[in-house]
């Protein structure tokens, strides 16, 4: 610790420590601790807060699993189903993004040269200057029953009736995949870019077909980048609100939308907090399990 102060000087050291403490405590730990606390409380009107009914309870969590005590079903099928679907759909979005971004990242990092690679990166970034809501609604225009894609398909005579992309969740998957594409491209690009091109050529020279070069040389090298890209996309997809709200079909509910309703229209913050905590923990457990499976440490993701 004294070494740290000596190296950086008193002023900078103090600033660094305060900044990190501020960041961790005020921005991360405190709000989440409040949410955690909320999730174990009853939903009471302001007058009763601090009163005899203000006790810790598991009822909010119980509600997610078993539904309201008076309901006929043994479990809260609706919400559990939405929860599961959100997780699975987020895995899908992650896989779609990986499949889309890996070739792009590989191309920019190892094949394209200089100016062309830079302009490709710029082309990837530019669309994200448009805000999220606008992008989501423009996807509605694109995928709507009277939208651009249907108009083209119909005028080419490929379909007679417009396809309802919104109902089929195509628009939702497209919108979510698109929303987080950069978070996949850049970690992948960084990881692949640091691979010595000679290794690719060496593998090729030893007779390797292209897919094995990727499987045995490029992907193992890029594993930390793949892990960090997939983690980001999965977490953010599972926690997305705008895209599911705007692009989701009428029957498809995203778990975040339920959380949003508890907080907002439902006015039941403890219930919303409990749902949000469950989503957070589920995502964490899932990501850690996958990392365990692929033998990746947290430190590698931060590389």
């Amino acid at each position: 610790m004294t070494g740290f102060f000596q190296r950086n000087g008193i002023a900078i050291s103090t600033y660094l420590i305060l900044a990190v403490v501020f960041w961790v405590v005020l921005m991360i730990v405190l709000p989440q601790a409040y949410m955690l606390d909320f999730s174990f409380r009853n939903n009471l009107p302001p007058a009763k807060i601090g009163g005899p009914e203000d006790v810790y309870t598991l009822s909010n969590y119980r509600y997610l699993v078993f539904g309201s005590p008076g309901s006929a079903d043994a479990f809260n099928y609706l919400h559990l189903q939405v929860f599961l679907r959100t997780i699975i759909a987020s895995i899908f979005v992650t896989l779609i993004d990986f499949a889309l971004c890996y070739p792009i990242a590989y191309y920019i990092a190892q094949v394209a040269k200089g100016g062309f690679a830079r302009s490709m990166i710029l082309l990837l970034i530019l669309p994200f200057w448009v805000n999220e809501i606008l992008r989501a609604f423009s996807f509605r225009i694109l995928f709507g029953t009277s939208g651009v894609i249907n108009a083209v398909l119909q005028s080419l005579g490929i379909v007679d009736q417009p396809i309802d992309f919104l109902r089929a969740d195509v628009a939702l998957y497209a919108g979510l995949s698109y929303a987080y594409i950069l978070l996949m491209v850049f970690p992948l690009y960084n990881a692949i870019e640091s691979l010595d091109h000679n290794q690719i050529e060496a593998a090729r020279d030893l007779g390797s077909p292209w897919w094995r070069i990727h499987w045995r040389v490029v992907m193992p090298h890029a594993k930390p980048g793949i892990a960090s890209g997939c983690t980001l996309v999965f977490m953010l997809s599972a926690g997305a609100l705008a895209a599911p709200q705007i692009l989701g079909g009428p029957s498809s509910l995203w778990f975040t939308q339920i959380i949003y309703r508890w907080f907002n229209t439902g006015g039941n913050w403890p219930q919303g907090a409990a749902y949000a905590i469950v989503l957070l923990l589920a995502c964490l457990v899932f990501v850690l399990a996958v990392m365990r499976l692929f033998k990746i440490s947290l430190g590698e993701i931060a590389r």
Binding site: D196, Q199, E201, A203, D205, G207
Partner: peptide, 21 residues
Amino acid sequence: IGPNKRPTALIFQNLALFPLM
């Protein structure tokens, strides 16, 4: 005929061994 199909093997200046194997 591509490098993976030729009866040649190349030793690179920086060797290009696979560090993860």
